[in-house]
């Protein structure tokens, strides 16, 4: 099939960037979306032009590297599917396809379709872990976990950290991402000790990194390739209310401990 692509090209962070039109032919319906871009890129390289830079790695929908907004929807038209798992049979001959990078203050553009998502790392650094020393853990079966709780934790833990939720959110909020981690650990007995600290610090850092707040548009749930639910955000809010009276609530946050020196490199 033939397609008309409009792809965001931007040389670097300071370049204004623009949409560039590419006409393709000989695209097979069996190709994945990224293989279609490979074909375009091979053509560009052979013509001595710079290929389109885009992030991708595992190409099986689990690493969360690929990040493209296709016709206004992060990860494109197919529900619960990352760009790398999207196949061209979802499109028709002659379609116009707009491909843009994730857009948010917290995700500055590196080049073309590649953005810097290290802000998500720093949200995780704020409390996305359970503090346990290597080798001092008790026997695994000494911690009993209700099956429903284990399942909730697992559902929340499925997050691949791609940032589609931020890209889709009109407020550029990372609430679903943050809430997923908070929910995972809040559902488990191991996560209770640090629960209050976690929810306070992660939300503080989220704001500090330039993410917006959640005003419940639920766009994030609609585009999440792993089907994470906004009920996790309700859970985060609940966890936050529980932390209200605690001394863990930081008076002010300066971003001191974050790995800022070398954010993405």
């Amino acid at each position: 099939m033939k397609l008309i692509l409009f792809i965001w090209r931007q040389q670097g962070a300071d370049d204004p960037g623009k949409l560039v039109r590419y006409d393709t032919s000989e695209i097979s319906a069996e190709m994945s979306f990224l293989e279609m871009l490979d074909v375009v890129n091979e053509g560009l390289v052979k013509d001595g032009k710079e290929p389109i830079a885009f992030d991708h790695d595992c190409r099986e929908g689990i690493c969360g590297t690929c990040s493209q907004v296709i016709n206004g929807v992060p990860h494109g038209p197919q529900e619960r599917t990352t760009v790398c798992q999207l196949h061209m049979r979802q499109f028709k001959d002659g379609d116009k396809i707009y491909i843009e990078p994730w857009r948010a203050r917290a995700f500055p553009i590196v080049k073309d379709l590649i953005v810097d998502r290290s802000s998500l790392e720093r949200v995780m650094q704020a409390g996305g872990y359970i503090s346990v020393h290597t080798g001092c853990a008790p026997d695994a079966n000494s911690i009993l976990i209700r099956r429903e709780d284990a399942e909730t934790a697992m559902d929340a833990a499925e997050c691949i950290g791609c940032g589609a939720c931020v890209a889709a959110c009109p407020n550029g909020s990372a609430m679903l991402f943050t809430a997923a981690k908070v929910t995972q650990f809040a559902s488990l007995p191991q996560g209770q000790t640090e629960a209050k600290h976690r929810v306070c610090m992660m939300t503080e850092v989220m704001k500090h990194e330039g993410f917006g707040s959640c005003t419940n548009h639920y766009e994030c749930q609609a585009v999440c390739p792993k089907g994470l639910k906004t009920s996790f955000i309700a859970r985060l809010n609940r966890e936050f209310l529980k932390a209200l009276d605690s001394p863990e609530m930081p008076e002010s946050f300066s971003g001191g401990f974050l790995n800022r020196g070398n954010p993405s490199r």
Partner: peptide, 9 residues
């Protein structure tokens, strides 16, 4: 976005 689409909002 140049093309924007709202799904759930």
């Amino acid at each position: 976005y140049a093309v924007s689409k709202n799904i759930r909002s």
